[in-house]
């Protein structure tokens, strides 16, 4: 049975996001043609730099879908990186157990936050703010220095960080020395894309995923319809922190370091990406694919600003602010027309 889907306002928002991304990137290609913007590698770098953010934004999306928010993610990433750097670098822990430890920490972290929010009904903002301070503080308690992970300290982790997965050579270009540069991605990109696909399936095709939607749509109704709202919230926050830990590992693979100041404001990037990607702050409406494009737009803005070279990097923030306003206003306008039609 094939049913024609009308384009509703939510889909329209995502279309706008995607079109905006394409337009922005096209402008970049045109204006900075000489600086390699049009190379496939530049595009792939967007994924490489933002692999962590994509994972985190996926988790954030799930939480925002319930009508909540998770502002602990930036600090949690810093803590993850610090544990990785300190554990493998200073203590000499082996690679795989340390990574498992990070994932377990993520689950426990989410369990505590989710319990407070779901079962004790504490405001998500307050709860995750406590989580934010805790994780940031813990990072400093572990070590206040900036630590790096070197090849000597952990060869396996190092090899992952530097692994290149090559794409077909015809996508590449020949540089000015006559060498063919084959475009590549890092393993982190594969992880991030996998996360997107899995979360997409979870949200669309599992009972848990639909429960998240229902809770975001109307909590009272969800209860009345016999769904377990508390448990749904608990799992949403566990999922967020777990994905945040995966994101933290990706982030660490990119930076190969841990420091107290790392990933500051990361939670805001994740929220901004979700909103630009069509997530409604009041919950209930979301698109994982949209969130991914949100991340990409954010990344493109940053790339544009850095490629220019002359602009202050803070211009990227201002551009993000403008975009956020644009999308929030767009959401209100759509909501207004919808109400008027009804």
């Amino acid at each position: 049975m094939k049913t024609k889907k009308k384009i509703n306002s939510n889909n329209l928002l995502i279309m706008i996001t995607i079109i905006m991304f394409i337009v922005m990137y096209a402008i970049g290609c045109f204006v900075y043609a000489g600086k390699g913007f049009a190379h496939v590698q530049t595009f792939l770098n967007l994924f490489i730099t933002n692999a962590g953010l994509i994972c985190v934004a996926c988790g954030m999306t799930c939480v925002m879908l319930t009508g909540g928010i998770d502002i602990s993610v930036g600090s949690l990433i810093a803590m993850d990186c610090m544990i990785l750097a300190h554990g493998m670098g200073v203590q000499g822990w082996p690679c795989i157990p340390t990574i498992i430890l990070i994932l377990v920490i993520g689950v426990i972290f989410g369990l505590v936050q989710g319990f407070l929010i779901g079962y004790l009904n504490i405001q998500p903002f307050i709860t995750t703010m406590a989580g934010m301070f805790f994780a940031r503080g813990m990072t400093a308690v572990i070590c206040t220095d900036q630590l790096s992970i070197t090849q000597e300290q952990n060869a396996l982790f190092y090899s992952w960080a530097n692994a290149k997965i090559y794409l077909p050579a015809f996508l590449g270009y020949t540089n000015n020395k006559g060498k063919v540069m084959t475009p590549y991605v890092r393993p982190t990109v594969i992880i991030a894309l996998l996360v997107v696909v899995v979360i997409f399936i979870v949200l669309k095709y599992t009972k848990f995923g639909r429960s998240i939607y229902a809770v975001g749509g109307n909590e009272t109704s969800a209860t009345m319809m016999g769904l377990n709202v508390k448990r749904t919230k608990l799992f949403a926050y566990i999922l967020s922190s777990f994905l945040c830990s995966i994101g933290g590992i990706c982030y660490c693979l990119n930076t190969m370091s841990g420091s107290v100041q790392q990933a500051k404001g990361f939670e805001m990037d994740a929220i901004a990406s979700s909103v630009i990607g069509g997530t409604r702050l009041t919950g209930g409406v979301v698109n994982v694919i949209g969130s991914r494009f949100g991340v990409m737009i954010n990344g493109t803005i940053n790339t544009l600003v850095t490629t220019n070279g002359k602009l202050l990097s803070s211009w990227a923030n201002i551009a993000t602010a403008a975009l956020l306003c644009f999308f929030i206003i767009l959401q209100s306008v759509f909501a207004y027309f919808k109400n008027r039609n009804n």
Binding site: R210, S211, Y213, G217, N218, M225, G284, V285
Partner: peptide, 29 residues
């Protein structure tokens, strides 16, 4: 009305007892 406005009519009817495919996913069709 104690339903979720952001879900489809079908979901509102069946949420909590959705038909599943053999793999355990929700069978939308």
């Amino acid at each position: 009305v104690n339903l979720c406005p952001n879900l489809t009519v079908a979901e509102n009817l069946f949420i909590g007892r959705e038909p599943r495919t053999k793999a355990g996913f929700i069978d939308w069709k």
